[in-house]
Amino acid sequence: MRYAIIATGVAGAVLALAGLTSTPAQANVIKPAPVVSIASHDAFFDHLRAHCGKAYEGQVAMNNPESAGFEGRLVMHVRKCSEHELQIPFHVGDNHSRTWILTKTGSGISLKHDHREADGSYDELTMYGGHTLDAGYDRVQSFPADQYSKELFVALGLAVSNTNVWQMYIYPEVFTYRLTREGREFRVEFDLTEPVPLPPTPWGYAD
């Protein structure tokens, strides 16, 4: 037993005492931490992930005050899905610059807006978004602007956006993306009952 301890170290000694065998390499393997989340966040993810690989057409339901930039056909595509991340490009006509990224962080869900140029490079205004502050609901989650976003908005002269709250609603027949702040509401609703042909690969991504 003394020689077993010398040969394998403390980890090996514990295994030897238990009547098991292991190499030092095996003893030092660290398993990845599990994805940590709560029931309402899991359910919200699962409702969206059920649409993975499908695309749906939408329409602007609220744009107050009127703001340009959302003319053309609106299509969301639940393109990439894992246990902890969802990538959902939002196509506006021939503009394929936007991708929503939802990530389980261990303390909630993060929403980021990945904006790219046509050559794949990052837009000046990108990766802004918010983080859940509570459990939310199985079909509704809210994302108040996070600190990174607030500092980015200030740096770009967009401090009015510091009070942004993004919301997502996922119901059997409709998915809603909503932005609110004082004096501003924008909402797009997508029909989940009828998938449409898949849009092009979003800028900056590869199949």
Rank of each mutant, 00 (worst) to 15 (best):
A118M: 06
Q59R: 11
A145H: 09
D138F: 06
H131C: 11
C81F: 01
G120I: 12
G69T: 01
Q147E: 15
M127N: 13
D138G: 09
L86M: 10
R116W: 00
K80Y: 03
G53H: 04
T105L: 08
R139I: 15
G130L: 06
A118N: 04
N64C: 09
S107F: 09
S110G: 06
G108P: 04
M127S: 14
G53N: 08
L86N: 01
R116L: 00
E71H: 15
H84T: 11
C52H: 05
F143L: 07
L133T: 15
K112N: 14
E85D: 12
D134H: 10
P65C: 05
D146C: 08
D146A: 02
A135H: 05
H131D: 10
P65W: 11
E57K: 14
T99G: 01
L125M: 13
G72R: 10
H96R: 06
I109F: 02
E124L: 14
H91N: 11
S110D: 08
C81E: 01
H84N: 12
Y122M: 08
D94R: 12
I101Y: 01
C81Q: 00
E117P: 02
D114V: 07
Q141W: 06
G93P: 03
D138M: 04
S97W: 00
R73K: 15
K104A: 13
K112I: 09
H131E: 15
V92H: 02
L111G: 12
S142N: 14
R98G: 00
L125V: 13
S142M: 08
E117W: 05
A118C: 04
A55K: 06
H131F: 08
D138S: 09
P65M: 09
G130H: 10
P65Q: 14
G53C: 04
F143N: 12
H113Q: 13
K104R: 11
H113I: 05
T103E: 14
K54D: 00
T132D: 04
G93I: 07
C52V: 02
V78F: 07
T99Y: 00
E57T: 10
P65V: 14
E57I: 06
V140N: 10
T132S: 12
P89C: 00
H113F: 06
K80E: 05
A61P: 02
H84I: 01
M127D: 07
V75E: 01
E117Y: 12
Y122E: 09
G72H: 05
I101Q: 06
T103V: 14
R139E: 11
E66I: 15
C52D: 04
H51N: 10
D94P: 03
S82K: 11
F70D: 09
T132Q: 02
Q59W: 02
A135Q: 07
S110T: 05
L133I: 15
Y122D: 15
G69E: 01
Q59N: 12
M62D: 07
R79P: 01
F90V: 02
T103Q: 14
H51K: 13
Y148R: 11
E83D: 06
D138V: 07
D138C: 04
T103I: 07
C81T: 03
R79S: 05
R73N: 04
S82I: 06
G120V: 05
I101A: 07
H115E: 03
G53K: 10
H113Y: 05
L74D: 07
G72E: 02
H96M: 01
F70C: 12
A68W: 02
H84L: 05
